[in-house]
């Protein structure tokens, strides 16, 4: 796989390459060691500077970084015993979402994860992480299974949206998403939602109703992709950066809006630079959240979930 470097990451990568070169020179000497130390400091400063001033559009690009960990990267790390559960029992299996059971440090969990591909073939198989109705129905089936056996649900969001195709419409994309929103509001086990990359439209929300809504630092979530919004409201998809600003799509924005409960920090320079580090961070966060959610009675859990949703919106009321 070729390493993809985003434009604004280039200064960091240049320093890293230089460091690599110096370290490979098998020369002992305090001068070299000092040079390496200086460069290392410079690298840290550069990362801090660049990542301290990211625009919304740069966050969107990071969320889509092809080296970013995807659902299966997290799932396989968190639960080496993961067993995938396929199919909606009506029509087909939708590979753009991975579902299955496993344990994290002995805790039982049900996973739902929107899955992108690492290369062209893989992406065709995964449909670029864009779900079809059978995907939403598979997700609902395994959520009901989790409910039956009192297993908490972890839903990993990473999609540009639901798939806009003929078959998807024929098989009721709208109905499938609506059904999930309806049912997920009443599933009696904890549901932990984590945006790990991008999340747009009902396509993301269709597995996104739950008790906690967490976002990794360099992710975005909105009603439509910035490109989609730009092509409708600006009549020009190239205005996507402006659309990202106008819709306020980043994790920090969603936290401000009261839709995201907590932003999870990524390793220095982004999740794509340190998969293992990111997985460890996420593991801790998941364990903390699940432990808290498990303390709630079913009634309290559902009441809180309902109240969370009911309070989202922004309007004024004149009397």
């Amino acid at each position: 796989m070729n390493n993809v470097v985003l434009e604004f990451e280039k200064p960091i990568v240049e320093l890293e390459n230089k460091l690599l070169e110096l370290r490979s020179q098998n020369i002992a000497g305090s001068e070299l060691a000092q040079e390496i130390e200086e460069l290392e400091k410079k690298r840290q400063r550069t990362i801090n500077k660049i990542f301290g001033n990211l625009t919304r559009w740069q966050r969107v690009q990071l969320a889509r970084h092809p080296q970013r960990p995807y659902s299966l990267d997290y799932i396989n790390y968190l639960s080496p015993d993961f067993l995938e559960l396929h199919g909606d029992r009506f029509f087909a299996d939708d590979p753009s979402i991975v579902c299955g059971i496993g344990t994290i440090e002995g805790k039982r969990v049900m996973y739902l994860g929107q899955q992108k591909g690492r290369n062209t073939n893989d992406n065709l198989h995964r449909n670029f992480g864009m779900m079809r109705p059978e995907g939403y129905r598979k997700a609902l089936r395994v959520m009901k299974l989790a409910e039956k056996f009192n297993v908490p649900i972890i839903s990993l969001i990473d999609t540009m949206g639901a798939f806009p195709g003929l078959g998807a419409e024929e098989r009721g994309q709208g109905e499938a998403i609506a059904r999930n929103l309806f049912e997920m509001s009443q599933i009696t086990v904890p549901i932990l939602i984590i945006v790990i990359g991008e999340g747009a439209s009902g396509g993301a929300l269709g597995i996104g109703v739950g008790d906690r809504f967490l976002m990794l630092e360099n992710t975005w979530f909105s009603v439509i992709s910035p490109e989609g919004c730009a092509s409708i409201l600006w009549r020009d998809a190239a205005k996507a950066p402006e659309a990202a600003d106008a819709m306020k799509v980043t994790s920090a924005d969603l936290l401000d809006m009261g839709i995201c409960d907590r932003v999870i920090n990524e390793p220095l320079g982004g999740a794509h630079r340190d998969h293992k580090g990111m997985c460890e961070i996420l593991k801790n966060e998941i364990l903390i959240e699940l432990t808290e959610l498990e303390l709630l009675s079913t009634d309290d859990l559902l009441e809180h979930r309902f109240d969370r949703l009911s309070n989202i919106g922004n309007y004024s009321e004149s009397k």
Partner: peptide, 26 residues
């Protein structure tokens, strides 16, 4: 569809209305 001009607030109305309907249905 959802009103893009309200960003994620509009998206979440889908969940808000569906959750309320679920209770009504119950």
């Amino acid at each position: 569809g959802a009103r893009m001009q309200e960003g994620s607030y509009s998206l979440m109305q889908m969940a808000k209305t569906s959750a309320r309907l679920a209770r009504f249905s119950g």
